[in-house]
Design a protein around this nucleic acid. Sequence first.
DNA 1: CAGTGAACAGAATAATATTCATAATTAATA
DNA 2: TATTAATTATGAATATTATTCTGTTCACTG
Lengths: 157, 157
Amino acid sequence: MTKVEYNLDQVDYKILRLMQDNGRINNADIARELGMAPSAILERVKKLEQKDVILKYSAKINPAAVDQKLLSFIFIKANDIIGEQRVGLALAEIPEVQEVHDIAGDDGYLIKVRTSDSTGLVDLMRNTLSKVEGIISTRTTIVLQTVKEDQQVVIPE
Amino acid sequence: MTKVEYNLDQVDYKILRLMQDNGRINNADIARELGMAPSAILERVKKLEQKDVILKYSAKINPAAVDQKLLSFIFIKANDIIGEQRVGLALAEIPEVQEVHDIAGDDGYLIKVRTSDSTGLVDLMRNTLSKVEGIISTRTTIVLQTVKEDQQVVIPE
DNA sequence: CAGTGAACAGAATAATATTCATAATTAATA
DNA sequence: TATTAATTATGAATATTATTCTGTTCACTG
């Protein structure tokens, strides 16, 4: 049980808002925005990283540009023991699988998968998913069009 | 119809891999990694941004740190006309809604929502979702635990 | 009310970003 | 295939940021 206290204040929230919106914003700009010294911002940001408030920085890449045009969600029923998650972890190892969620109700997982096209999806299911021990059944939902897709979180205050 | 040619080569792919993994990596480091001059990397990166291969940079924030501990997926049946997407766009405006996908089959949407807890979810559905015109029905799936969640895309070669 | 620690400012230094002129490479074509 | 044009890279110079460090303030505590 790792109970963590984050203890964030207004300034932290403002920094997070700026960095969530632009992961490459520099300390100088944040400092200007908040009317503080860049060195102070640097300290804050480092602390936010250490406290695991900021988990990672990443460049969002256009899936179409790297030929990953098909997005699908797959519900997977598994025979995992409660609490354990052998299947979930195995699914998480697959590069095309962007998300693995343990969901309530169906003793199963919901995963998000990106492939080049429907052929790629079929291949993935045949060659990779089928190799995962403990999968009982799957139900696939194809995405026709994505209206919004980000990881932006609502920041308080 | 905006048909785009991305025309990426090995070097671009390597850059994308590095930047997807670390959105704050600097040109100097990329240059060292690839055995090129930093100025050349800068040019490449700028081109990747202009071509919309790199869509955005962002800091991934720990949802728990900002009290957004509950993740849910909601299937939404709507009476949108095919091709149009009034409902989808309205859903996309809601800050708690991170994703809106137009899905095949059910003439509906699949959305991903983050709230503080189940109370927050209920509030959102009562106060915000219910205000969206054209929603026929919803079916909610609660996430108990997330095993993996990123936007990393498989980069060729 | 001295002592301690956290947070910030400001100055100095180190590192990186950016610009630009030139060279190398590649592609196009006569 | 030689020649030109266009693209891409280099390397040096400069601008901007990151980072370090010292000193100050302020809140808290014994």
